[in-house]
Structures are given as C-alpha cells and as structure tokens.
Amino acid sequence: MKAAVVIFPGSNRDVDVIDALTAVSGKEPLLIWHRNTELPKADLIVLPGGFSYGDYLRSGAMAARSPILKEVTVRAQAGVAVLGICNGFQILTEAGLLPGVLMANRDLKFVCRNIHLKVERTDTVFTERYAEGQVIRVPVAHHDGNYFSDSETLTRIEGEGQVAFRYCTPEGHLDDSVNPNGSINGIAGVYNENRNVLGLMPHPEDHIDESQSCADGRPLFESLVESLA
C-alpha cells in the first residue's frame, strides 16, 4: 500500500500517522505539501490532525480550499481511499467530501482523553480487521468535535449506513454521558456514500502498539494495508 499524507501549515499529528503507516505497512508514506497541485499515485490519502491555519474562520475551512484539495477531491470521487483524522475530518466536511459539520464541543472545553468507540460496520476498507460491534479504546484531543447535520442528512447517513464509529461505554452501550463533545447520535466518524472516504475525530494512529498502552487503532491501518496492498 502506498500512502500519501498531506501536510498543512498547522498540522501537528502528521508524524503520528506517518509513524503508524510506516509501522503497519512497512513503507514510509509520501509527504505532500498542501500547496502542491499534483498528487503522485497513491492507494490511500491521509489528512492528519492538527490546527491547520490556526482554525481561522472555521476549523478546516481554509485547508479545504488549499490547492491540493482539488486533486484530493478528484481522487476521492474516483474511488481512492481517503482518511481524515480530527482536523482532517473537519477539512473533509468543509470540502464537501463528507456530510455534516464539526462544531465547538457542547461544553466549550478542549477534550483530551481516552474514549471508547463502537465499530459500526466491518465491510469497509478501513474496518475489515475489526469484529462486528467491537468496542475499541482510542484517544480524542479536540475542541471542535461536535458532529452535527440537518435532520434530513442525518436520516440519510443513518439509513445508508454511513456512520463509522459512535462514542460508547466500555461495554459498548450508547449513552450521552460518554459522549465527549455533544455529537448528534454519538457520531465519532462518518463515511461518504461509497465508503472510500472516512473522517473521524478520535486518533487511532496513537494506539497502534502496546507500548502506547493499547493497540486498538492498529486494525484500522491493517485493514487498509490488506485491502489496498
């Protein structure tokens, strides 16, 4: 699997995801500066976490209008796998590649801790190495992770199975008390219609090795390596 990581001014989780991709795939990803207009051939495009453009105007708004996003959009529409983590998720919604929007957390606090997620489906290139309904533990670190969409869109994405992950209790129950940011329906990650684009607020790239106390994020990268090799 050949991966490309797009770097924006203000990206700060790029090294985390580069390390995760290198560790799991055995190959270092290509690094693409956001002002590039061309993107080498890649099986996976990653938009990493961070605070691109200092979150000016809205989180992800400026990065979504970066030159490279035109090419990312073309590739996404052609079926190339695209993964947006945290700020990358915000950028994908701002670019219109994923439905909905990420607003400020409902309590206006930056949330930085481990949370539990329920894997909603395992028939995608991102999740096939997980078990149906599996609960995984991964960290979140964000201020604007409150997923929202209008009710029509919400009905559509729920009906089409576009929800990828939901915040849950360690036992896998959906409960507002473990929703770290107020996301509607506890949504932590969503797919596009074709399920080749995934955005999620938590950081699976930070839980890929037991030395990080937990390796629950590793199967996501293993799924990609297996599907896209």
């Binding site: 105007l57 809205r58 708004a61 209008r65 701002e94 909905g100 929007v101 607003m103 929202f148 969409s149 209008d150 869109t153």
Partner: peptide
Amino acid sequence: TRLLANTVI
C-alpha cells in the same frame, strides 16, 4: 456560499 459561511449551520 463557497467560503465565508458553512451553510449547513
């Protein structure tokens, strides 16, 4: 519509 506002919200 293209930048200044996010018309979802």
